[in-house]
Simulated assay, not measured.
Amino acid sequence: MTQDPTSEPSPRMRVARGPKRPDYMGNRDLDRFMMMFTALIGEVSALRDRLDTHELLAAAGRVATPEAIEAFEIPGEDTARRAATREAMLRRVFRVALEELELAQHEETANFAEESVE
């Protein structure tokens, strides 16, 4: 099957390859779960943005057709609001991990301060 050289290449998913995949959590099953979970959060975020576009079109009295949704230009103030909403959602979803990271960073800073005093 030959592809037309003038056409754009199809987008490819970025996937880790090779004999050893990245090990983030020290448990392969947990790593897989977290990768799936993170991908799902990305999809939820995209759905929220799309729903917001529907709402903005409706508020402007426009019909939310697929073409209207794809062509919709997001006003600047709505871009900032979306970014804040997305950030809040990610903070809620990853709250436990963020708290543990902040605690670990605080402990590391405290240990470094103690070592430098000695």
Rank of each mutant, 00 (worst) to 15 (best):
A16F: 13
E67D: 12
R21G: 07
M1W: 06
E87D: 15
L101S: 08
S10C: 02
D31E: 03
E102F: 00
T38R: 03
A58S: 10
F112W: 11
E118R: 13
F112I: 10
F37W: 04
R28Q: 15
D52V: 06
H106N: 09
D52M: 06
E108A: 09
T65S: 10
S10F: 12
L56Q: 09
R62E: 06
G61R: 01
M89P: 05
Y24V: 01
E8H: 09
A68M: 00
L30P: 01
E77A: 14
T6W: 12
R50E: 12
S116W: 04
D4C: 02
K20R: 15
E87Y: 14
M89N: 01
A84F: 05
M13H: 07
A59S: 12
R62I: 00
I69T: 06
A59Y: 04
I74W: 04
D78T: 05
L47Y: 13
S116M: 11
E77R: 15
K20I: 08
A110P: 00
E107Q: 00
F37H: 09
T65H: 03
F94H: 02
E107D: 11
M36V: 01
P22D: 03
M89V: 06
G18T: 05
L90Q: 13
A84L: 06
K20E: 11
L57Y: 02
E8K: 13
A68S: 12
E102Y: 00
D4H: 04
L30D: 07
R14T: 09
L98S: 06
L57D: 05
E100V: 01
N27H: 05
K20S: 12
T38C: 00
E67Y: 03
S7R: 13
L30Y: 11
S10A: 14
M89A: 12
A113P: 04
A88G: 08
R17K: 15
E8T: 10
F72N: 04
G42Y: 01
E43P: 05
T38G: 05
A80I: 08
A97L: 01
I69M: 07
P66W: 10
A58D: 08
M1K: 09
T38P: 00
E108T: 04
M35K: 11
L101K: 05
A59I: 09
E67W: 02
E115H: 11
